[in-house]
């Protein structure tokens, strides 16, 4: 049986777990290195990247995460994108709260292109980061908003600056991620 881990130190882990439940996929909340060994894929939810980085260092998760994400498919959303950049697995320039404060948060229509298919979805951007530029030529961009990449992919890693867990129209992101986990 497929088991997906959701990093659950802080943030939108419940919202991701709800989506996985709807999609009929078993998930576990990951808070320690031991749990990492049991999962076939890993989700980094949104939240506050400063808080998550603090907790990962304090509770000896940083190195374990770095090792495990090179082995299994990963889905990172919002703050998770910043984390993957800090973990040196995504070579990108990213600006925290790039759109501004909560009053600038909103839902923007997105067009996502993946493997010859096109998806139209509502992107929830909540104090979202902006990917200002991509350093690694191996990174593919699946969707843009106002010329900035908002959904990127590199080998086993899928990352969105918006929150697919907050809109049923965007569950395709989770489905694509789960496809990778099943392979």
């Amino acid at each position: 049986m497929l088991t997906i881990g959701i990093v659950a130190l802080q943030g939108a882990f419940q919202a991701h777990q709800k989506v996985l439940n709807i999609l009929g996929v078993h998930s576990v909340l990951v808070k320690d290195p031991k749990a990492l060994a049991q999962v076939d894929g890993l989700i980094f939810p949104g939240g506050e990247s400063t808080a998550m980085i603090f907790l990962m260092h304090k509770f000896q998760l940083w190195d374990a995460l770095q090792e495990r994400i090179s082995q299994i498919p990963v889905l990172a959303t919002c703050a998770g994108v910043i984390l993957l950049q800090k973990l040196s697995v995504l070579a990108i320039h990213v600006q925290r709260n790039g759109y501004g404060r909560q009053l600038a948060s909103g839902v923007f229509p997105l067009k996502l292109s993946y493997a010859g298919q096109v998806f139209f979805l509502d992107g929830f951007f909540i104090r979202a980061p902006i990917i200002q530029s991509i350093i690694d030529p191996g990174i593919q961009v699946w969707a843009y908003h106002h010329q900035y990449p908002v959904c990127i992919q590199k080998s086993n890693i899928l990352a969105t600056t918006f929150h697919p867990e907050l809109s049923a129209s965007a569950y395709c992101i989770h489905k694509i991620f789960l496809e990778k986990c099943r392979q």
Partner: peptide
Amino acid sequence: TIQKKVNLGFVEMFKGG
């Protein structure tokens, strides 16, 4: 209603914090 969803979504980010 969209504003409401965006603000409820924002609250998700505080959980466990």
